[in-house]
Amino acid sequence: MLMLLRSPRQYFRSQFDRILERNIPANNSHQLTQRKLFILPTKTGLGFIFATALVWLVGTNYENNLALAFSYFLLALFHVCILHTFKNLHQGILRCVSASPVFCGESSEIQLVFNPGRLSRQSIQFSWPDGSVLVEDFGAEKEKKITLFVPTKYRGWYKPPRLVVETQHPLGLWRCWSLVDLDIQILTYPKPMVSGPMPQTITNKNEGKLHSVHGGEDFHSLKEYQPGDSLKHIAWKQYARGQGLLTKSFSAYVDTRLWLDWDLLVGLDREARLSRLTYLAVDAEKCGADYGLRIPGIEISPDKGVNHLNTVLKSLALFEFELEHARRDTQRKKN
């Protein structure tokens, strides 16, 4: 009732969604049976009816049987087309083969297979709302692979909207379509966000390279004073000897293996941290460095290579993604 009060359009929309849920539940493969297909005249179809009506007016006003017969011919054509448009989709089998993982906001490449069954089919259009569009013909009994791209909107297991399979063949008077839920889950990595270099992690073990670092414990060398150096570190002894103003520099063993550490990105929220970690992981892989990942509950030890990167990215993608989805849902409902 509340829905109805909001707007009839929304009410019908939700009713239609309910029919879709019932008739076309999520499944990896769908045979397009009559329950799953919808058919309505197109704008062209309505124009055709208008033209037919004009011809009929000529026929009836001139009491001209042939013009009348011609208008009935057009009307018959209109009716016969329902059948041809419908049968162009009817009983085709659509199956999802794969969906490539992508960074959020990019388009995932989706591989589908359409099996036309025993009829050849023409001009079937596959499309995703705001995704790519593909029009294909199919010979009888000839399965064909279809590649489509669909943009992702949020990270985690992204569920794209229903795929639109439609045809207006043969005359464009009718549009037969189905909104198919192929139960596709796209592994969507967080959107990479450029950030500064990862703060390096200090380790107590004697491994790694020696690096001059503020806060190191062991004296390393002296260097010329520069304004801004801490007064505590000025080598007063050398100054007294008249060697000029020098600063003592200290060093520590620094872990050269990069740790992409959740805790080091202080002051950022979950998504911002994930985005930065994603960027750093990709960047580190590009540079050829070893890198590990530390996020709450998950530690992946440093390594490199494509498989490693994928593991890291997948962990980032799926980290508390249900929470994020829930948050988005409540936000959407509020709007």
Partner: peptide, 18 residues
């Protein structure tokens, strides 16, 4: 379309000149 047309031709109501 021809058989459909024939049926419409035979049975569609005739209204004459408007």
């Amino acid at each position: 379309s021809i058989p459909v047309m024939l049926i419409l031709f035979l049975l569609f109501p005739r209204v004459g000149s408007l």
